[in-house]
């Protein structure tokens, strides 16, 4: 059995979640696994994914071709593998869109092959 204590990052409560587990065929054996310290179910889900496949939501900005001194914030619609975070950040570097833009508009589909889209997170008219 292995044991890991993690800080759940799904909300600013930051619960200290302890997961005790063993791997079986490359997956966690959910029958013998115990998770403690989480306030809600997301803490459990997070602990499981942190020890198997850690993911992060990447946020950043892209340029606006028709506005001066104004960029617009974006995020990955769903979290991407942690080791892809630097690549995703780089992929945003030279991107420009034209205002108006709205929350949810897709800027890049399937960014860096992660299966997640880059979407706008603010409304600029």
């Amino acid at each position: 059995m292995e044991s890991k204590t993690l800080t759940c990052i799904n909300c600013p409560m930051g619960c200290q979640v302890t997961i005790t587990y063993e791997m079986k065929d490359g997956r966690i054996n959910e029958e013998t696994m115990t998770v403690t310290g989480n306030t809600c179910l997301r803490g459990k889900t997070y602990a499981i994914s942190e020890v198997t496949n850690p993911v992060r939501t990447v946020t950043g900005t892209v340029g606006l071709s028709n506005r001066e001194l104004r960029v617009v914030p974006v995020k990955t619609k769903t979290p991407v593998p942690k080791d892809k975070v630097p690549d995703v950040a780089k992929a945003l570097a030279d991107v420009k869109v034209e205002a108006p833009v709205h929350i949810g508009d897709v800027v890049i589909k399937n960014v860096c092959g992660t299966g997640s889209d880059i979407v706008i997170t603010d409304n600029i008219e």
Binding site: N10, C11, T59, K75, T121
Partner: peptide, 25 residues
């Protein structure tokens, strides 16, 4: 919030994780 573009806002209010501008919107 308009400049807090990172996520982690609103899980307790909206039961989903939003960025600052999305929460404000």
């Amino acid at each position: 919030l308009t400049q807090c573009i990172h996520n982690g806002f609103g899980l307790h209010t909206f039961k989903e994780e939003l960025t600052g501008p999305e929460y404000a919107a």
